[in-house]
């Protein structure tokens, strides 16, 4: 089991970093495409897909 953990843990950490970065950015930017609370929910609860969607569509291009 500890072998499994060693393998899976880095992946979980990467995913956490991604979610954290998206949330930090969300809290800093002034405006997003679509309401902020919606993005917060998406990022927190649909993990990878929601986070990627935020970076692709939620951030304004400026």
């Amino acid at each position: 089991m500890s072998d499994t953990l060693k393998l899976v843990l880095p992946l979980a950490i990467l995913q956490l970093i991604l979610v954290a970065a998206a949330l930090v950015d969300l809290s800093k930017v002034r405006r997003t495409n679509g309401p902020k609370w919606m993005w917060a929910i998406l990022i927190l609860f649909s993990s990878l897909l929601g986070t990627v969607a935020y970076f692709l569509f939620g951030r304004r291009s400026d």
């Binding site: 990467l14 995913q15 970093i17 991604l18 970065a21 998206a22 986070t51 990627v52 970076f55």
Partner: peptide, 17 residues
């Protein structure tokens, strides 16, 4: 600054692994 250098490599790692 748009976090592309963070999230795109991470997503490629996760997708592959």
């Amino acid at each position: 600054r748009s976090y592309k250098w963070l999230w795109i490599p991470v997503v490629f790692i996760l997708l592959g692994v």
